[in-house]
Computed example of a mutant assay.
Amino acid sequence: MIVKVCGITTAMDALTALDAGADAIGFNFWAGSSRYVKDTAFLKELPDDFWRVGLFVHEDPQRVLDLMAEHRLDVAQLHKMDAIAGIRVWKAISVDGVLSQERIDQEQAEAVVLDTPAGALEGGTGRSFDWELAAGLKGKIVLAGGLDAENVGLAIQRLRPWGVDACSRLESEPGKKDRAKMRAFIEAARKEFDAVC
């Protein structure tokens, strides 16, 4: 079971998340996001003992492959894109209705990230979707959308996902993490994962 923090834009925020126990960190390579990683130099300063997840939206597959290699990314989280052969892929799905197990199984991905519909924002709204729409799904499900320290425990109890992912509710402003909120989220998620294992 994994805990991911997404939308990291600085080395200090990344190191804070790792120190608190995050397994994966998401870096946004979509220029339309307020969390877009404009300056990638800090990625070279980070250790190698976590999963580097690159978030891509409507991106050219070759550019995804180039960025994966350049920044030593472990996983490509793809929004509104087909899977790309030869790399680890997590597919993002906006949950706007009941999901079938067949839909999850047909995704050509290591894991599926379930998030709240966000329109043109492509995530990071701070809103949760109705978790009951995803009840009973099997496989590597990463639950996202409006999670923070206050509700992540309940989300894990109800859905027993493979992972949880938070972004905007852990921020002081878009692209800038509140380190206390980040630590509290990771601690709460870890505590609940330990309880349900």
Rank of each mutant, 00 (worst) to 15 (best):
T10Q: 13
S100Y: 00
T116N: 08
A188N: 09
C6Q: 02
A24D: 06
L18Y: 05
L65H: 07
T125W: 06
Q77G: 12
D178F: 10
D48G: 08
V142M: 12
I93Y: 07
R160K: 15
E102G: 07
M1F: 00
L114G: 07
W51V: 04
G124A: 11
F29G: 04
D48T: 08
R169P: 07
E70F: 05
D194Q: 15
R160W: 01
I2T: 05
L65W: 06
D66Y: 02
D178I: 13
G126M: 08
K177Y: 11
R103Y: 09
D19A: 13
I104S: 03
D48C: 08
W51K: 07
K44M: 09
S94G: 12
N28C: 14
P161C: 04
L46C: 11
S128H: 02
R103Q: 15
F29R: 05
A118Y: 03
V53P: 13
Q77S: 11
D66R: 14
R179A: 05
A92L: 08
A92Y: 02
P174N: 02
A85W: 01
L170W: 13
H79W: 12
V95T: 04
N151V: 11
L159W: 01
D48H: 10
P161E: 00
S168P: 07
T10L: 12
A188Q: 13
L137G: 02
D48V: 04
D82S: 15
W51D: 06
Q106L: 10
A195K: 11
W131T: 08
V112T: 09
I87P: 11
R183Q: 09
F129R: 01
R190Y: 00
M68A: 08
Y36E: 00
V89T: 13
D194C: 13
A92V: 15
A22P: 14
I186R: 06
F42Q: 14
